[in-house]
Design a binder for these strands. Sequence first.
RNA 1: GCGAGGGUGGCGGAAUUGGUAGACGCCCAGGACUUAAAAUCCUGUGAGGGAAACCUCGUGCGGGUUCGAUUCCCGCCCCUCGCACCA
Length: 838
Amino acid sequence: MPDYDPKTIEAKWQQHWENEKSFQVKDDPSKEKYYLLEMFPYPSGRIHMGHVRNYTIGDALARFKWMKGYNVLHPIGWDSFGMPAENAAIQNKSHPNTWTHANIKAMTEQIKRLGLSYDWDREIATCEPEYYQWNQWCFLKFLERGLVYRKNSEVNWCESCNTVLANEQVVDGLCWRCDNEVITKLQEGWFFKITDYADRLLEGLKDLEQGWPEQVLTMQSNWIGKSYGAEVNFQIKDAKESITVFTTRPDTLYGATFMVLAPEHPLTHSLSRGTEQEKAIDTFIKKVKSQDKIDRTSEGGEKLGVFTGAYAVNPLNGETLPVWTANFVLMDYGTGAIMSVPAHDHRDFEFAKKYKLPIRVVILPPDGNTNADDLKEAMTELGPMTQSGTFDGLAGDEAKQKVCEHLQSNNIGKATVQFRLRDWGVSRQRYWGTPVPIIFCEKCGTVPVPYEDLPVILPLDAQLGDKGQSPLKSLDSFINVPCPKCKAPAKRETDTLDTFICSSWYFDRFTSPHNDKEAFSKKSVQYWMPVDQYIGGIEHAILHLLYSRFFHQVFRDLELIESKEPFAHLLTQGMVIKDGAKMSKSKGNVVDPDHIIGRYGADTARLFILFAAPPTKQLEWSDQGVEGSSRFLKRVWRLFDEMVNFLRVMPFDKDSLGDDFPEELTKELKELRRQIHTAIKRVTEDIEKRMQFNTAIAAIMEFVNHLYTFREWWDEHEEPPVLGCFLLKEAMDTLILLLAPFAPHIAEEMWQRMGHSETTHQTAWPKHNEEFLKADEIEIVVQVNGKVRQKLSVPSSIDEESLKAKSLGDPRIQEWTNGKEVKKVIVVPKKLINIVVK
RNA sequence: GCGAGGGUGGCGGAAUUGGUAGACGCCCAGGACUUAAAAUCCUGUGAGGGAAACCUCGUGCGGGUUCGAUUCCCGCCCCUCGCACCA
């Protein structure tokens, strides 16, 4: 028989799976479902090792679940809208659509060479009208529910490229494409009111504690940023206006010694008007506006401020406080105004020191010293209130609560909650995206495109300019439409939607990808959702995963979906690195998956990636490690090759004998049987309970090593025992099945050659028998004072007393116990005995 | 600064409930096969000592709890990631 030839074998089985549609699934309520999803790729052109790792992890799990009897949904698609397509098109003087489809084609071929168990009939691409029309549908539904609005906001703008840039496309304040400085610009656009769901998105994280990495939960929780506190009104002295501030420390209200407004706060300018501070304030506002946003909001940034000339009154003690404006107070958090309590807030302390503003201690420090002059830094810990009138002595949450009650009953404030989460700006002044289904009519105003007019097709005849400006703005055939309401000439919105909208619900679409009546069928979504296991990179921890959770909640409110959360379990895979750094062209450490597959085969590549590190940790690429994996598969093949002709003609199979072996099974055969069942148990638990494929594969390797040892014994027998033949066949069959999720091609080939008519994929995952794990003889470690001094081989049935006696009587042990008093003896059954002497 | 994760041989990594530290693999060395090499198979492989049996040390550092600690507790150092003037 030939040597292991991955090229032929892999092509053969990939063809087989494709012809047979082996991984096609249907909604089947009679079977337990398992929805496994890897984050769908952006068609950038070529797959990289990160993709390979992502899909290999997913595929191993999918194949395992199939064999476990689940109805497995394992789909793939393309997140195919976005800027890289436009940029490539501009560069190559082609069209984003052409570029995208060529990439999808090329990457599909690459992915297919990995032998992944996808249901290709469910493939979707978000740049197709069949898909993006439902983005538009979502937009309209959200609009109906009051979750969409239009507003002016500051965006990143590159003057040279003449376009808005996403935050990610601003590198160190410069445009990623032309290296020109990025400015902020006021721009009107559409927003999704994700803030309406802030509380629910935060609460929902509790349901994910079992299935999501803690790190991701924390990141989302921080991003949403809920803080409890109070709003307090400070009356401006000798004026009608008042300043409302938000504070998380109402218990420090008596310590407020000045107020600070954000420069953008409407009162900042108006309060200074007519005072001698007016000019200084205006200059300051201009200066802050020109300050880099990152500089301004970074902790190390210098705090700058100016007095407005106005004073406010502390509603609790009637004190007069100067009102300042400063760069460190942000308009878009809280109310854009703060009360400053320098004694108990780091920023206020720094500011007060710099501008020589008063400081007053109102929380009793542990040493009882309330002299502000002795303060070296702000004391931010909670503690008993002091110098705070009738509140003195109250501490912590009780203090905060009592102050809030007082504020409320005197109508000067109230307990409230603040979130850091901002609404989601979804407008892009770009071409390659989903057109926003809105028409502007002079008479009727902003008119949504009626559902029956969807989709609003993105015209493919548009020619991209060389500056990235959206051609839609000048495409008359697109812009000019009659108003859906009054039929008068009107104009289409030319903005497109953020591509993150595409990825916020694609997993729902996968459950009924060809539905042309709905975004997804309720029945299918009901059956398949939630995704049981989602796999992808940590870089999506916030954006994509938060947006998807938001969409899911809205779909729930629309009664389209019942599950609480979209992704029950999340696995964030680690990076693939080489020579200690992330693979990148500039570092020249990229390993091309095609090259590896071409040289060693997909099974070797898959096996290496799964074996080299646990899935959540970073993986150091090693060419020698790949050699090792290849060597292992060859070793398996040789073992198989030597016995296949003999084993395949075995007249019976596993079920014909049942589990009842005659007792006279020899020592060696019993040991072989134990190895089979140990391997099954270890591999199954490593996949199922721990998702640790590296140790699962290690267990298979050990099993193979044992089989090699067994073979030596076997070769000594001219006439092998019948039961031995049976066991050997069972061993080989088990080995193949255990290997199938990791190296499916070689497994299928061996399985077929063993004479099975079904594929491994159609065969049930083996089960271990607890009885067969027991060995007759076990090794007991004997310790003296916790140090290993002897290892004894004893019958596994030995009772504690005999074990003690045997250990104490052992000559080696006696050398250590001689002349000493045995204080006690600790026995860990079947493992260890520790003799404590003095 | 805050939050999370981590630190184990020459390397990637094991050790599942506090019970043999270093599974499995890579690298390296020796042997078998071969005219030779490759491939393969076998053996060895944490450090130090010893001819050997075996002994001592050893999981970032310092303490502690325990018969016993990579694992639990206290204090520190370092690395990675995330957040970072959020009132």
